[in-house]
Structure formats: structure tokens, C-alpha cells
Amino acid sequence: MIVAASLVLIVLFSVAFHLVSPWWWTPIASNWGYIDTTLVITFWITGAVFTAVVLFMAWCVFRYRHKPGRVAHYEPESKRLEIWLTALTALGVAAMLAPGLVVWNRFITVPDDATEIEVVAQQWFWSYRLPGADGQLGSSDVTWISADNPLGLNPHDRLGADDVVIDGGDLHLPIGKPVKVLLRSVDVLHDFYVPEFRAKMDMVPGMVTYFWFTPTRTGEFEVLCAELCGTGHGYMRGYVLIDEEAEYEAWLGEQLTFAGLPAGEGVQVANTAEPIGGSDP
């Protein structure tokens, strides 16, 4: 009796906690509302299954608990029941998987007009690079890294000359424009994580990873590292500020380009948009 009641209480507590508690995701600030929708669908389906199964179990425990004289029913299996249950489960799984895969397809298909920007991680802070006037990022490699050239930009690549380098500051992005975030790490695994954007991806030394999103809300959003990267992992924070276009341009005008840094002094400013020897970073 107590057991059955506790099972019912667990269901009630779980459902009430889900509906009433103040803890829910942060208000979204990107175009990935699709992900939230898929998550909500999953919540409904799994919540219904959990409620139904535990309540049925509670009823079984209540109804069929041992009493003198009770004999269990003898039934080794029921093919029909099992086929029905398999089919229903498969249906529920498909209802979660199908939207998931559709949204994943969007997630990995970067729109053509997305601006490429770069986030560089190292123990334990964030740096950023914006493409500058030519709209292209110059090449880079860890072997170029020095005190003067903290992000390892190639000093012989003309495309990199006008790249805006933000070493240790905050990143600003204009609202409403799709951004392809190229992710690079110079030491260990990191993960560029802004809860409000929903999207995230690991940064792996030796390769460039990416994700894309479109900011939909202005404001200040905290950046965290979501892949364990050593002792300072929990304190590897930064901010991304989503600005209106005009404010963004004003901010951009104040930033240094690579050519303005000591390491980039020798680079010719690219006067054509034609890439020469430059490749994707």
C-alpha cells in the first residue's frame, strides 16, 4: 500500500516539479528555436511514457500484492501484446527522431551569406578574430604563435592583414546576420558555449571546427567553456555582445587589425579580394 502510494507520489512530484519549478532554459537569443521545439516534443513523449508506466506499475503493486490464497496467473508470453508494444514504442521513437534529424540537417547546413568569424581558445581565455574589410580570414598555424602574435596568424598572408584581432576582450556581433563561427584551440580541447545560443561545438587543437547561428536578441551573453580543459576550466569566461548594426560598426571601428600589431607590421594590406596563396584557415 505504502509502496504503491509512493510510486504515485513520485509521478506527481516529477510532473509538478516539471510544471511549477522555476528552473527552465534561459531565454533563447538565436535562431535555434527549432532545437527547443524538438526538446519540448521529447519532454512530452517521454513524460507521458514515464507517467503511464510508473502509474501502471503502482496499480499492479497495489492490486496484486501478496495476500493469503493469491496465486499468480500463468502466462509465459503474449506475442500480440509484445508486437503492439514494439510498434507503439517504435512510433514514439520515430516521432522524436524525425524532427531531430531534420533540425540537425539545418544545424550542419551553413547558409551561404554567413559571415565567418573565428574564436580561438587557450588555457584559460577566449580570443576572437573578425575578417576585416575583405571579408576573409587569413591563414594561421600554431607554429606562428608568439608573444606578439598570440593567435598564430600567418604574417605572410595578405588576407590576414586586415583581420580584426580581439585578444582577451569581448566579442561583438551584429543582430540578425548569420554567423559561421570557426573554432580553433591552440592547446587542449575547449568548447565555446553560450547557453542562450543553444549551439555549441568542441574546439580541437590541430583542426578547425564550426557551428553557425543567427543572433536574434541584443544583449550581453556569458561565454563558458564546456569541455574540461584543466584547472582553470570553471573560470574560463567571457562575454558576447549582440549589438544593433550602428553600435556594432562603431565598436568595430575602434578595434586593431593584425597589420597594426607588432607581428603583422610586415604584411601588405590586401588591395584585392583575390586570394593569393591564402586558403581557408
Binding site: V3, L7, I10, S14, W25, W32, Y34, I35, T38, L39, T42, I45, T46, V49, F50, V53, V54, M57, V61, V93, M96, L97, G100, L101, V103, W104, F107, D191, Y193, P195, R198, A199, K200, A226, E227
Partner: peptide
């Protein structure tokens, strides 16, 4: 055994969030 069924069911169902690739994106590493 009853406790196992409840907790396993709960944990198994949340696995459907994390296994479904795009739902995993915001939830991974949290």
C-alpha cells in the same frame, strides 16, 4: 527491483534527449 525500474526508466528516457543528436547540442556537457 521496483526502485530499479523507476530510476532506470527515468534515466533511460532522458537518454532519448541526449541520443537525439540535435537535442544533445544544448544539453551536452551540462
Amino acid at each position: 527491483a521496483l526502485g530499479f525500474i523507476v530510476t532506470f526508466l527515468n534515466g533511460g528516457l532522458t537518454g532519448l534527449f541526449l541520443g537525439n543528436v540535435v537535442v544533445d547540442v544544448p544539453l551536452s556537457d551540462t
